[in-house]
Amino acid sequence: MEVSANTPAVVTGGASGLGEATARALAAKGAKVAIFDMNEEKGEAVAKDIGGVFCKVNVTSDEEVDAGFAKARDAHGQERILVNCAGIGNAIKTASRDKQTGEIKHFPISAFDFVIQVNLIGTFRCIAKSAAGMMSLDPLSDEGDRGAIVNTASVAAEDGQMGQAAYSASKGGVVGMTLPIARDLMREGIRVNTILPGIFNTPLMNAAPPQVKEALAASVPFPKRLGNAEEYANLAMCMIETGYFNGEDVRLDGAIRMAPR
């Protein structure tokens, strides 16, 4: 599906990092982009800069997601593109022993559940609601192309590190549901793909000390650096615009395989 002037698109987590880069890449090709995010100040600024619209959305809320899609569609029309970048992470061992006191603790179930709610169920919530809307559109071609969806997982879906049980489970779920959803939507002409980013230079990573970033970059086989958000956006655009790209999960990681810690 070619991205052209006035193509309606929605990017969750679009106020910063991978989502912002993708929103800007879509806008550069003329798309009308709605940004779903919790960061109102940053989201409004990015939306203004790219000629889009900001929708304050918590992807764990049916009501907020519905309101976000309603606002986006009122401004730009029914979206043909959805890119899911909203997500969170934590680092907690399944069970651990305090080195000083010997006290044994387990992963708080509420913390595990929250990561699943945002990363996995939040992603599916946006997919299901967006796909239902796309189904109302007329096809763009004789092949029946109606829309494209790109999701964000992580290399942690396949080689999660210590403390990443919740994060890996959530991202593994995104990978696992990609093909079934693509099959669910195949007769409607809606394609679904997922990107598994490695270590990227995002605002979250910018907070790390320089020596930590240098060590992480050195662990990447080639090129020996952190990924750039624009590289994620390039792959997302390829998935959107290449009509035969469907049901795939693609690592974007410089060939890294994460160590246990």
Rank of each mutant, 00 (worst) to 15 (best):
A111R: 00
A15P: 06
P260M: 02
T94Q: 07
L82V: 02
T152E: 12
N206Q: 10
E79G: 15
C126Q: 10
T202Q: 13
G243I: 14
E103Q: 04
P180M: 02
K29A: 03
L179R: 10
R125Q: 11
E41G: 08
A28C: 06
I88Q: 07
A156L: 07
A95E: 11
L252N: 12
D145G: 02
E188G: 01
V57A: 09
G43W: 04
F36V: 11
S61H: 10
F222A: 14
A95C: 03
T7Q: 01
R125F: 05
G89A: 12
F54D: 08
P210C: 07
G247Y: 06
A72H: 06
P223C: 00
G176L: 09
S4G: 08
K99H: 13
V212H: 10
Q117H: 14
M205A: 14
M239R: 00
L137Q: 13
L216D: 11
P209I: 04
D74M: 02
G247C: 04
V118Q: 02
V150F: 15
D184K: 08
G51I: 01
K32D: 04
D142W: 03
S110W: 05
E103C: 05
H76Q: 11
I149R: 10
A21G: 02
T22K: 03
G19N: 08
I149V: 11
L185E: 03
D37H: 07
R191L: 02
L179K: 10
S130P: 03
E158T: 14
L185M: 05
F114M: 14
N246E: 07
L204I: 06
L137I: 15
R261S: 15
A23P: 06
I199A: 00
N6E: 05
R73N: 15
V65G: 07
A15Q: 00
G147D: 12
M162E: 14
I181Y: 02
P180W: 00
G189K: 11
N58L: 11
D253F: 01
I256D: 09
F54K: 05
L26P: 04
G68H: 02
C85S: 13
Q117S: 14
V175G: 12
T178F: 06
V250N: 06
P210K: 05
V150E: 14
M258L: 12
V220M: 03
D113V: 13
T12K: 12
D74V: 07
K42N: 15
R73E: 13
A131E: 05
E103I: 01
E79P: 14
K29R: 12
V220Y: 05
A156E: 03
R191H: 10
F200S: 01
D159F: 14
P180Y: 01
K105N: 15
Q100W: 12
A86Y: 10
S4V: 13
T94I: 10
A156W: 01
T123G: 05
G243E: 14
T178R: 09
G176Q: 09
I81G: 01
R251I: 15
V59K: 00
L216F: 15
K48R: 06
P197S: 10
E2S: 10
L120Y: 01
I109N: 07
A23D: 07
